[in-house]
């Protein structure tokens, strides 16, 4: 799941300042789940913006709210065509993908990010999300006991811990456990410590030369329009 957090209010206020009619657009998938951009957060942002304007004695903007199932798929964006009529700008509470999908679909409409897209992660408990995957495109979790050192080690090193951990926690974030100590313990438990003793050659960064694309379909010639999403 993509995890994001809402941008500071002042940033959003600054973005919408020149506009009169602003649509606050939530996303019903990832950012709903991480409490950053679902219907409830859209409403909260709306309330906060109205309050900010009331306190500042600022000229009133007209805000409207909507939440799509997903902003990152063109088909869902079609449902917005009527909603954005007369709208001067959109603040998207989707991840960066959603913001860009909107910008691609509505060429004349300014689109602003309302959240900072942070990472791919999971909720470890209510209201706490931890990063778990760096989307490096070269997964080696099979060698590290299912614990990703690239994501969870602050240095992303591959051959064991640095000398920094204190009390099992990372030198940088004392809240986070040292990934390599976790890996050691887990491999020990699984009787697979030899996987850690093995030398890991330097990472292959080629999969993350940007922009990335995955082509899942076979390179057949399309018949009709169903072959391409954006055709």
């Amino acid at each position: 799941m993509i995890v994001a957090e809402q941008k500071p209010l002042e940033d959003i206020i600054r973005m919408v300042r020149p506009y009169k009619k602003v649509l606050l657009l939530g996303c019903g998938t990832c950012t709903t789940v991480c409490n950053a951009g679902g219907e409830t957060e859209v409403a909260f942002l709306h309330d906060a913006l109205r309050m900010a304007e009331a306190r500042a004695g600022d000229g009133r903007r007209e805000y409207s709210e909507a939440t799509l199932k997903r902003q990152c798929d063109p088909e869902f964006l079609e449902h917005l065509t009527e909603r954005v009529e007369g709208v001067d700008a959109v603040v998207s509470l989707a991840c960066g993908t959603g913001v860009q999908a909107l910008a691609e679909r509505f060429a004349d409409l300014p689109v602003f990010p309302g959240v900072n897209t942070s990472f791919i992660g999971m909720a470890v408990e209510w209201g706490v999300w931890d990063e778990r995957c760096a989307a490096c495109g070269d997964c080696r979790l099979e060698d590290t006991g299912g614990i990703c050192p690239i994501t969870r080690c602050t240095k992303g090193i591959l051959n064991g811990p640095c000398a920094g951990p204190k009390k099992g926690h990372c030198e940088v974030s004392p809240d986070m456990e040292c990934a390599w100590i976790l890996i050691y313990r887990r491999l020990e438990r699984l009787g697979q410590l030899e996987r850690m003793r093995r030398y890991y050659p330097p990472r292959n960064f080629r999969p993350i030369s940007r922009p990335r694309r995955i082509v899942g379909k076979a390179g057949l010639e399309a018949r009709g329009s169903h072959g391409d999403v954006t055709a």
Binding site: P161, P165, K166, K167, C178, I181, I183, M196
Partner: peptide, 11 residues
């Protein structure tokens, strides 16, 4: 004197 010598020694 590292925190978790087992892992340090592997390295």
């Amino acid at each position: 004197e590292a925190d978790f010598m087992e892992a340090q020694l592997v390295k």
